[in-house]
Design a protein around this nucleic acid. Structure first.
Length: 588
RNA sequence: GCGCCUGUAGCUCAGCUGGAUAGAGCAACGGACUUCUAAUCCGUAGGCCGGGGGUUCGAAUCCCUCCAGGCGCGCCA
């Protein structure tokens, strides 16, 4: 019997009791889990009946509870204040639910809620003048997870990246390399390409302090680039390729992947046609200074102090474009190229206003899909000393952080392998799964809107509310299943009537709730829902593990039932972590 | 000045579409490995849920207001 059927059965019995006691069937009741499973397996609050029956919820609960007798589903009924608590026969509770989870396996919790709608998730948007930093990793972790969550709920997902590969900041590293590089390459310097280029960006900052004339040289270089000067373009391509080679390694290491790469050098001229058309249709206007502007609707944006509408410039008087003009063009390009129903932009909260303006304009231009666009805004990552802003020089380098975490994981792995049975390759593989998993989990366990105070000591911990903790629970289950297999034990012939202790009930409850949490996470674009739920599930398993034997259960039929329970738990842990972009290990 | 976000245990955070005694992790202290991996578990201690009003049978949750911090507010990205 499925949980839904059990709930339905409870409501039917409530209805029957209500008709008998009050002459009417109760309406609007919901079956929920009690806060403490010792109270019962399911509960119904009688609040909605108080008004129509003009009695207190507690009195109604007492009357109804007295009118419901035990049957082959319900074992016991008790009134507790305004609630009626139901205890259900364990066999009914566990049997079909565990069978369903085990048979669904990797797809448990999935749904078709997205109705195959096509959605693009854009994330990362790096600059090609320096390596990725911790802030990018938060962005990536969110993008990876949200893409997976959307796919799991029946959306067709296209992952994209917008690379800021042009502009003055790019020219700065180019100029510094040209002047001071003496033909050095990442190979000759023995550096990853993005780090190598980053050193020249830093070098520019140092040199320009001493020589104010460099600024003019950079502007000149930018002009040459825009004019298509072959030498400048050659240098630009060469240095960007170094960066891309470096980025590719980081993408791979962190599990980022993209179906579509957009380059600002391709997209920065987009939008002008649409803006011109919008001007004809009076979506845009020309202001007194010659700017093409968009008047922000008062209803959403309010007015200036003067009472004039707020506005945003979409084109300069000389016709050159701005960030938002390109974004208009790129948004439309995305939709036309990929037949999108919606777009998700994973971008920091400092750009909230920008995206509100962008979506408003797209709507005003007549694109119905604008209403489905979503800015997945996330808070800053702060360092103990201050903000994660590369301009201020204080950053945590992404590659360094990943390497550091993997090294720590490696130390722990070696500690657990005193007899040196593991190959170096296997140690590295495990270290990578644990290290990157720890980072992703650390970045995803809080709500996107919440800023993160990056505490180096806490972030490297593998204890408590962490990825490795969850991975460890999975590995433990795998160990038991493996040993059970060796002894010829399976979850067949399970007697589910033997389950039902508090630890087993809590575990089952969490397994049942997993699909709801996935649905909430998608609805809120909030992977932390899944992170928290998976942690709770791992913890519930560890509590169960410490108190009850599986293979050495009281009876073979009981062992089989517990095997089914932990098998289902493993499926949920793996799926949940997978939705966070975190892999699992069979052995840790 | 205006808008958005944040304020919950010593620290970091859940809970925010209103419901049973406000939860977790870390840190502190005390325990548990001859038995499926101790990267684990158990226990103790720790809260005017920023302040004040209001709505409600019921508020950390909704409304108003004040305080504190962050981000942003056309011709940067």
């Amino acid at each position: 019997m499925s949980i839904e059927s059990v709930k339905k059965h409870i409501l039917e019995r409530m209805a029957a009791a209500g008709r008998k006691a009050f002459g009417q069937a109760p309406e609007g009741l919901a079956v929920v889990f009690p806060p403490d499973l010792q109270l019962g397996h399911f509960a119904v609050g009688c609040f909605p009946l108080a008004k129509p029956l003009r009695k207190s919820p507690a009195e109604i609960a007492r009357t109804l509870a007295a009118g419901i007798a035990a049957d082959d589903v319900i074992q016991a009924v008790t009134a507790a204040g305004p609630y009626i608590n139901f205890t259900v026969h364990p066999k009914i509770l566990f049997e079909d639910t565990l069978a369903e989870i085990i048979s669904a396996g990797a797809s448990y919790g999935d749904s078709r809620a997205g109705e195959s709608r096509r959605v693009m998730v854009e994330y990362l948007s790096p600059n090609t003048n320096k390596p990725l930093h911790l802030g990018h990793l938060r962005n990536a972790a969110l993008g990876i997870s949200v893409a997976r969550l959307l796919a799991a709920t029946g959306h067709r997902v296209v992952k994209s990246i917008l690379i800021n590969d042009r502009g003055v900041h790019i020219c700065k590293s180019m100029l510094a390399w040209q002047r001071f590089g003496n033909g050095a390459t990442p190979q000759s310097a023995g550096m990853k390409g993005d780090h190598f280029v980053g050193t020249w960006y830093v070098r520019y900052a140092i040199e320009s302090e001493k020589d104010a004339a460099l600024e003019a040289r950079v502007q000149e270089m930018l002009k040459n680039w825009e004019a298509g000067d072959p030498a400048t373009l050659g240098l630009w391509k060469r240095m960007n390729q170094w960066v891309y080679d470096g980025f590719a390694a980081t993408y791979r290491r962190f599990g980022m992947d993209f179906d579509v790469f957009y380059y600002e050098s391709d997209t920065y001229k987009l939008g002008k046609d649409v803006i011109a058309e919008g001007l004809r249709k009076n979506v845009f206007a020309t202001d007194e200074r010659g700017n093409t502007v968009y008047h922000l609707p008062e209803a959403q944006f309010g007015l200036e102090k003067s009472g004039a509408p707020k506005k945003v410039t979409v084109l300069r008087p000389d016709g050159t474009s701005l960030y938002i003009s390109q974004d208009i063009g790129t948004a439309i390009l995305k939709v036309t190229q990929h037949g999108l129903d919606s777009s998700v932009y994973v971008v920091g909260s400092e750009q909230e206003h920008h995206f509100k303006c962008l979506f408003s304009m797209l709507g005003a231009l007549g694109y119905a899909w604008a209403a489905n666009c979503y800015h997945l805004s996330y808070g800053m990552v702060y360092l103990p000393e201050g903000k994660m802003k590369s301009r201020e020089g204080k950053v945590v380098d992404a590659d360094d952080l990943i390497a550091g975490m993997e090294e720590l994981a490696e130390v722990e792995i070696r500690k657990r392998d005193p007899e040196r049975r593991l190959s170096e390759e296997e140690i590295k593989r495990r270290a990578a799964v644990i290290g990157t998993g720890a980072i992703k989990y650390y970045l995803l366990r809080v709500r996107p809107a919440q800023s993160i105070n990056f505490d180096p000591a806490e972030s490297i911990s593998f204890d408590g509310f962490t990825g490795p903790y969850c991975q460890y629970a999975y590995a433990r289950i795998y160990g038991i299943l493996e040993k059970a297999g060796q002894r010829g034990l399976t979850d067949a012939d399970a007697d589910f009537a033997r389950l039902g202790n508090l630890e087993e009930l809590l575990l089952l409850k969490l397994l049942i709730q997993f699909p709801e949490e996935v649905a909430s996470a998608v609805a809120e674009y909030n992977p932390s829902r899944v992170a928290a739920h998976i942690f709770n599930t791992a913890k519930a398993f560890n509590q169960f593990y410490n108190k009850h034997a599986v293979i050495q259960a009281e009876s073979p039929a009981g062992a089989a039932a517990r095997l089914a329970l932990i098998k289902a738990t493993a499926a949920v842990l793996k799926r949940g972590l997978g939705l966070l972009g975190v892999d699992v290990l069979e052995n840790m």
